[in-house]
Amino acid sequence: MKLFPSLPLAEWVEALVDWLTNADLLFEAIEMLISFILTALQTVMEVVPIPVFIIGIPLLTFFFAGRKIGLTIFVFLGLFLIDNLGFWEDMLIMLSLVLAATIISVVVGIPLGIWMSKSNTVEMIMKPILDFMQTLPQFVYLIPAVAFFGIGMEPGVIASVIFGMPPTIRLTNLGIREVSTEVIEAADAFGSTPSQKLYKVQLPMARTTIMAGVNQTIMLSLSMVVIASMIGADGLGDIVYAAVGRNDVGSGFEAGIAIVIVAIILDRLTSGFQLKQKKK
């Protein structure tokens, strides 16, 4: 027999979620915005002919990621392989999910990070929330996401944002706080207003750190694609999920490889961008 009755935590959360569904209008607006972003991204990417993609992305990698011949060839072969396996369409859908999640994470996360860096109180409150967002098993996000947004791509994006945004917030905060006091003093001593200080000194100084955060966000969003497919998100993740369901090792591996290729390309491209900033 238990000494204390167990707390009805599950009921509380359910009650909260129930209550939140009342704010239907807000969620509908968010859903519309996300689906607009998704459609826009997909349309843009589908307009580009596949050969242009397969040749253009390696070139981009070459010039942005430190002129590495090997990497460039890898990117070319990787993209070629994805097309060859017939995953191109799915890859674009997955990419639009990842990019949409990244865009939202950056747009929301960087200002939050800036706010956090300006105030110790905000930092104190945000830190445990961020820890919570990152350590809660990813699957748990799916439940409220479905509750608020139904199934499909949009809740997938939402779940990816929640899981992927913390690094951007954290590293924006860190990057700004890391700027040496003397440089900040210099900005102040010459009579900068707070916004001049932010835009002319703090953000440029923190840029590489912030980019590292964005890179992490992209990677985390990518890691969400298979999970998001459980609530109806299409794309490569869905193929993997379906393969798991059918115990189909072959096609699961194919799609898995395709995801890895995309992950490597995105990682090298964004971290290459970081490097370039540093050198400059």
Binding site: S180, E182, V183, E185, A186, A189, F190, V201, P204, M205, R207, K280
Partner: peptide, 13 residues
Amino acid sequence: MSMVFQNFGLFPF
């Protein structure tokens, strides 16, 4: 008033 700093306080970028 202008200020000159010990470790220069220049903007590296």
